[in-house]
Design a protein around this nucleic acid. Sequence first.
DNA 1: GTCGCAAGTGAAAACGAATGTCATGTTCAC
DNA 2: GTGAACATGACATTCGTTTTCACTTGCGAC
Lengths: 150, 150
Amino acid sequence: MTSPSTPSPTRPTSAAGRGTRVRGTRQAEALGQVLADLPGFRSAQDIHAELRSRGERIGLTTVYRQLQVLSADGAVDTLRDESGETLYRRCATSAHHHHVTCRSCGRSVEVEGRAIEHWAARVAAEAGFTDVDHTVEIFGRCPDCAAEGH
Amino acid sequence: MTSPSTPSPTRPTSAAGRGTRVRGTRQAEALGQVLADLPGFRSAQDIHAELRSRGERIGLTTVYRQLQVLSADGAVDTLRDESGETLYRRCATSAHHHHVTCRSCGRSVEVEGRAIEHWAARVAAEAGFTDVDHTVEIFGRCPDCAAEGH
DNA sequence: GTCGCAAGTGAAAACGAATGTCATGTTCAC
DNA sequence: GTGAACATGACATTCGTTTTCACTTGCGAC
């Protein structure tokens, strides 16, 4: 939100020493920066628009591709909103967790529900299912959006 | 595709005084029949293909439209698979529940998790979110598909 | 510094699910 | 039986996402 301090973030000094596969390109760097700045889940097209509005010259294809790589790498979380669009967010932890997401501004809160994991594993096992995975997403209206009547 | 008990609920002779908009058309009848026969979640296109393979003359548009109406009516449940496609299934109960779904054959088991509802409501409230909704889906491999190596 | 090449990029085209359009067909009330 | 409202479906359109492929760029070798 209030991020007026944007001096020169696109400085590929040497901070790219993460587990990311991405090579040190200006686009990848800028994308990482935007992901770090945005507080909630955003669509690829949103992120692309944000990059463009910051003056970055980057193609939509690259945004999709990078997000795909980052997602496979576990560096960003993905979820699908009600309309089927895929939303992305860099999460603080790479451990398994879920989100409470605002359906109007995309802001999200990470929640950890050990109970849910157990429940999911149990009911799947009871049904005889193996190789089990689950998705749990909670959508709602965040306090700010509720206050503004969104 | 074992369809042992196939009652005839889709007989909107005069029982159409419900909230259902579906008029007694041949297509709606056939669609209801297919939904009753299919054991798991299937895509609209699957259902359309199944109808066609049964010799029904029905358009894809109609399938989508009917499924939409049935879904809004609570007569079928919907979920999105990993690829983003929407899947449909007629469920036994119209009460709120979740599913364990086989990711290769679409077969599903209904599970009721009161604990999940409470958990979702609680974590959302703790985050200050209102107007809360949630999705919980469990994907896995059903015993049959596991046995066949799918 | 410059050369070379693989990896990255991106505009445009392709793709696919889903929805809109509208002329035609069908059902139900009368 | 008749008519009008509603359902149908072939086709067009929308929209998010992926693929294609020619071009650019980072980076190690020289």
